[in-house]
Design a protein around this nucleic acid. Structure first.
Length: 287
DNA sequence: CACTTGACCTGTCCGC
DNA sequence: TGCGGACAGGTCAAGT
């Protein structure tokens, strides 16, 4: 579930609360999550928070960076004297908690906790100028909104989107979720965007007409913009930097609505598996 | 090469 | 009440 809007929500929080702090120590409670030598980041100051696709980068003032991926259930929660009384979502519980695996001890009595119930996520120490040598970042496709937010990743303009879609024989849903082709789109927004654009997720990408491509492009931007405005979707474990939930899960168009009636035509929403992923479709609205 | 399946994990939900 | 099994979704590795 953490897709572009969720990860961007975390990035904004890191920028606001964590950037400017110095890392005094790193407590590694679960070694698998933290890759690299923690002594390379201790006593350095955090100078910036970037996002590339669904990945995060904390830049330090010593030419090193922390690359972070929260995968499905990762949480980054900041606490200091001012924020320690802010209510935490039940999805966090307490910090440190049962699923706290990494604790960054920051200056000014602040801490940044990394929680991850399923432990799929990772934090890597890497040289700042080597971030894009990591395959995950190197292979990231162009992104929606990168002209306005993000880190200078190539921009997914309509022209670029058309070029990607019109050439691919892959089914349209797995295509737009392929991070190498387009950065940031995951299952929730792929489902909602295809529904909004009235396109069958199983259509071969190159069968889409220019109008359909344009509609889908606008639908992707629209659902993600709404989610950004709502602080992301908190279906599973997602919370922002203060441990608070987003609200897009209450605005999904078709994601998670199996058996309910389509808001456009009243047909029953169907669920099936496409390329291994849960897929929701209104068969009378999506062609 | 494209595509599918399994692995990584654990909480939640459903049926019996 | 409890137990087994399916399921959730991001990415990578391995298999077809």
């Amino acid at each position: 579930m953490p897709e572009l809007p969720e990860v961007e929500t975390v990035r904004k929080g890191l920028q606001k609360y964590v950037v400017g702090h110095k890392i005094q120590d790193v407590e590694i409670l679960h070694p698998k999550i933290f890759e690299g030598d923690k002594s390379l980041v201790i006593n350095s100051k955090i100078t910036g928070a970037r996002r590339v696709g669904k990945g995060l980068i904390l830049d330090l003032d010593n030419k090193y960076s922390l690359a972070i991926h929260i995968k499905l259930t990762g949480q980054l929660v900041f606490r200091d004297k001012k924020t320690q009384n802010e209510p935490l979502s039940p999805k966090v519980g307490s910090v440190p908690g049962k699923f706290t695996h990494i604790i960054f001890d920051l200056d000014k009595d602040a801490k940044l906790y990394y929680n991850d119930m399923r432990r799929f996520g990772w934090i890597r120490v890497i040289k700042t100028d080597g971030v894009f040598n990591l395959p995950f970042f190197k292979d990231m496709g162009p992104e929606p909104f990168s002209d306005k937010i993000g880190s200078g990743q190539a921009h997914l303009s309509l022209k670029v989107f058309k070029n990607i879609v019109s050439k691919a024989s892959t089914k349209i849903k797995p295509l737009i979720m392929d991070q190498k082709k387009i950065g940031g789109i995951g299952n929730i927004y792929a489902n909602d965007a295809l529904y909004k654009a009235g396109i069958d997720p199983g259509r071969p990408a190159k069968s889409l007409t220019p109008d359909e491509i344009k509609n889908l492009y606008n639908a992707v931007l629209s659902v993600m913009k709404l989610s950004l405005e709502n602080g992301g979707a908190s279906e599973l474990s997602f919370v922002n930097i203060l441990g608070q939930e987003g609200n897009y899960q209450n605005h999904t168009l078709i994601y998670g609505k199996t058996g309910q009636r389509c808001k456009k035509c009243g047909s029953i929403v169907k669920f099936f598996r496409l390329a291994g992923r849960g897929t929701y479709v209104c068969e009378s609205c999506q062609h």
